[in-house]
Structures are given as structure tokens and as C-alpha cells.
Amino acid sequence: MSDLSVRAPAEMTAPAVDRPQRGTLATLLRTPSFLVGAAILLFWGVCAAFAPSFVPYDPYADDLLNTLSPPSAEHWFGTDQIGRDVFSRVLTGARDILTIAPLATLVGTVAGTAIGLVTGYFGGWIDAIVGRLLEVMLSLPLIIVALLVLVALGPSTPTVVVVVGLVFAPLVARTVRAAVLSERHLDYVAAATVRGEGAFTIMVMEILPNILPPIIVEATVRLGYAIFTIASLSFLGFGVQPPSPDWGLSIAENYGVLVGGFWWTVVFDTIATASLVVAVNLVAESLQRALAE
């Protein structure tokens, strides 16, 4: 270094203005709606994992002498049309949906992120063609697309995971693409190009870390809709198959007797479904607010 150098400016000795890194989690833990949502989610998670070992009755066992009995000390939530204990079935009913929905969300998020990165980064004709295909996918209501494919392939757990995941991929891709486009014009991308980095490196190492927050939010929102969609499919007969105590399936099996006044056969399942989707949504919303700071 030459002795002609400029004296070190004082700015480098000044304390760096530091914003706490852990701010997001701290903010979340102070958000009531997050705490409520997380608690409900945790409750259903525990039920999904362990309910069969602590519920009072076998959720699959019928009791034809004791059908449609109203809630009582013996059967807290009553029994259904073939005498199964509704309380035990509701608690174990989270199992299938809490397996399928997160897996489908994972499939959708990974596929969508890949598509969004590629279309947003390259633009041009790749974007035009893929974008058009995605718009076609999006021009059909999700339930219809899922229905179409499930009719063709037959409903099974892996099929439902893949189908719902792929149906969500265009939505995730749209979000990711928009995020990539707003990063794409920033100079750090040009700087990487100028030092000879390849497209894959730029997408994954440079751009992806910066767009993780919207992807995480998108994934939690999608999880809510995955539960919504899979529950609806189960209700229509194209999702979880009998004899699962799945809520959507149970409601489909029993809502015919609702008008007869046997409300307990469906009401607890509807409350369970609603609590789960709302909980996921509260978590997603709080996360979004926390990340937006």
C-alpha cells in the first residue's frame, strides 16, 4: 500500500447498525393470532400422531345395536349411522389429511419454485410458453382439475398427493416468478453475470435466498388450501377412501341424516375441519406480517 493513501475514514469504526436477526420469531411469539393458531395446530398434530392410543373406542368398530345415539356420558359426541363412536373418530380423523396435505404442499412448493425461478430468470420464450400453460392450469378451478385427473388415475394417497401438489404448483410458480422478476433487475444479478457465474448458480445461490420469505409464506398459505382442497375431494369421494375416519369423508357419509336431526354425526367433524384450516391460516397470516416486519 502506498503511503499516499487516504486516511481511514472514521465511518468504519462506527458501530454497525444492527437489526436483530431473530426478530421474526420474537415477533411471532408476541402475536396472539399466531399463538392461537399454533396451539390448535399442535393439538391436531398430537392427535394425528397418537390419537389411536388414547381414544376411548376403536374408531373403526361398528356397533349396530347402538346407532345414531345422541351425545351421552358414554359416547361424548354420540355415535354414527353404524354405531361408531364419533368422539374417537373425530380425534383420529386428522391423521390422513395431516399426512397428505403437507406432502402435497411440499410437492407443489418445490415444483412451483423451480418453475417460477426458471421462467422468471430466463424470461423470453420459455416464460411465454410455460406461462401460457400455467394460465391454462389456473383457468380451471383447482377442484375440477384434481377431479379430472383423479377420475382418470383413480384415487389413492400417493395420487392425491401428486395431483394436489401439481395443481398448486402454478400458483406457487406465479408468486415465485413475480418475486424473481423484482430481483432480476437488481444489480447483484448483473454483477454475478459479469463475473461469469452460470444461470443455475445465479438462480439458486444468489436469487433464491432473497426470495425465501415470500416462498415460506406462500407454502403456509398453500397448506391451508391443500387441507381445504383435500377435505373437499374426500367429501366428493375422490380423496381419502373409506373406512378412514377422515372428517370430509365422515361428513359425506353422514350429512344425509342431518335433516333428521342427527346433528352430532357431522357437526363435530365440521368444527374440527374449520378449526384446522383457520389455525393454519392464522399461522400463515402472522408469518406474513412478521416477515414484512
Partner: peptide, 10 residues
């Protein structure tokens, strides 16, 4: 570049 906020990967 002109703007270091844009030129440095945050």
C-alpha cells in the same frame, strides 16, 4: 454499480 443496495446481494 450506482446503487450498492442493489449491487450487493443482501
Amino acid at each position: 454499480f450506482q446503487n450498492p443496495d442493489s449491487a450487493l446481494n443482501r
